[in-house]
């Protein structure tokens, strides 16, 4: 490895980087060809079909019928759908900031020389490794207002816990909490890998210049983690906007529709109400929202300067 590193580019060679368009041309397409085939046939085509289906009335078990923009007119007047979008936004706000910050903090902690660091890393990732359907059952036990572990623990310190999943104010935070629990360690993995890629010398240099550890975090670590942060926030937001499993296992959208996120509504519409055309319309709405949120992130991260190592 080190021998190979010795043959790596000199500073002079790197200076010319980006000047010439190395690798332009057909062989780039060869590299993406296999994935392109898969994406086109198995991901993009189904997605396009779903978007097209939003113009149809289709009860799944009978033939689809073209209805133009009818479904969209219905959507405009559908209070339930907009309520669901609001719930989804609330869910995203509850879990994304928390799980991102926690994951980063955890990664920084576990990026140090600590006894048993691998052991800890493994423990933190277990929530994401375990079979999801089983965990839904377990969390329902934990949230039981009377005999559940959570309220039993709270009672020990003199707090009377809420009714969690039966309380319209607490059900959504409870579901979000499970997501944070499940994804913090998982996201930690990406930050860990990102942190490992930051040359130690940069930290050392900053320290020599008298930067405090807070300054080093904001001026060195965070900017250099930008590519990782971008990936984590974009994919986490895409995932959080489509939350379904935990809601299905824990609340069925209740109580009083306080956890009825959009993807749950979509599933109900498609497979319980057999109204696939309208479910496709709701999916188009969800797609549009996620698309805009992603676009905003592309803008945001694009503006921020990254350290160019060259």
């Amino acid at each position: 490895m080190i021998a190979r590193a010795a043959r790596l580019p000199t500073r002079a060679a790197r200076g010319r980087a980006g000047g010439k368009r190395w690798g332009s041309g057909w062989h780039a397409y060869l590299f993406i060809a296999p994935s392109l085939l898969g994406v086109l046939a198995f991901l993009l085509l189904p997605m396009v079909i779903v978007l097209v289906l939003s113009l149809f009335d289709w009860e799944l078990l009978s033939a689809p019928e073209f209805v133009g923009l009818d479904n969209y007119r219905r959507l405009a007047a559908d209070g339930e759908a907009w309520h669901s979008l609001g719930v989804t936004a609330g869910y995203v706000l509850l879990c994304i900031p928390l799980q991102t910050v926690l994951a980063l903090a955890l990664a920084m902690l576990l990026n140090q020389r600590i006894r048993g660091v691998r052991f800890y890393r493994s423990l933190f990732v277990i929530p994401w490794m375990a079979t999801p359907i089983v965990l839904g059952l377990i969390w329902n036990w934990i949230f039981d207002p009377r005999d559940g572990a959570l309220n039993t623990a709270l009672a020990l310190v003199g707090i009377t816990g809420p009714d969690w999943l039966s309380d319209a104010d607490w059900a959504l935070p409870a579901v979000a909490l499970v997501s944070v629990w499940q994804h913090t360690g998982y996201n930690m993995l990406f930050f860990l890998a990102g942190l490992q890629g930051i040359p130690k010398e940069l930290h050392d240099a900053a320290a020599t210049d008298g930067a405090t550890s807070a300054q080093r975090f904001w001026r060195v670590t965070l900017p250099l983690l930008n590519p990782t942060m971008f990936f984590v926030t974009v994919t986490n937001l895409i995932g959080a906007f489509q939350v379904f499993d935990t809601v299905y296992a824990m609340t069925d959208g209740g109580p009083s529709r306080s956890t009825e996120v959009l993807n749950f509504r979509i599933f109900q519409t498609a497979f319980k109400e057999f109204d696939f055309g309208y479910a496709a319309t709701l999916s188009a709405l969800l797609f549009a929202v996620i698309f805009l949120v992603t676009l905003a992130q592309v803008r945001f991260f694009g503006k921020r300067t990254t350290y160019d190592l060259s």
Binding site: S166, S256, K272
Partner: peptide, 17 residues
């Protein structure tokens, strides 16, 4: 009924509460 079931359960949950 399959589509109604979830709504029915939610409404009656409130009743039992």
């Amino acid at each position: 009924f399959t589509g109604f079931e979830t709504k029915l359960n939610q409404i009656f949950n409130e009743m039992y509460l």
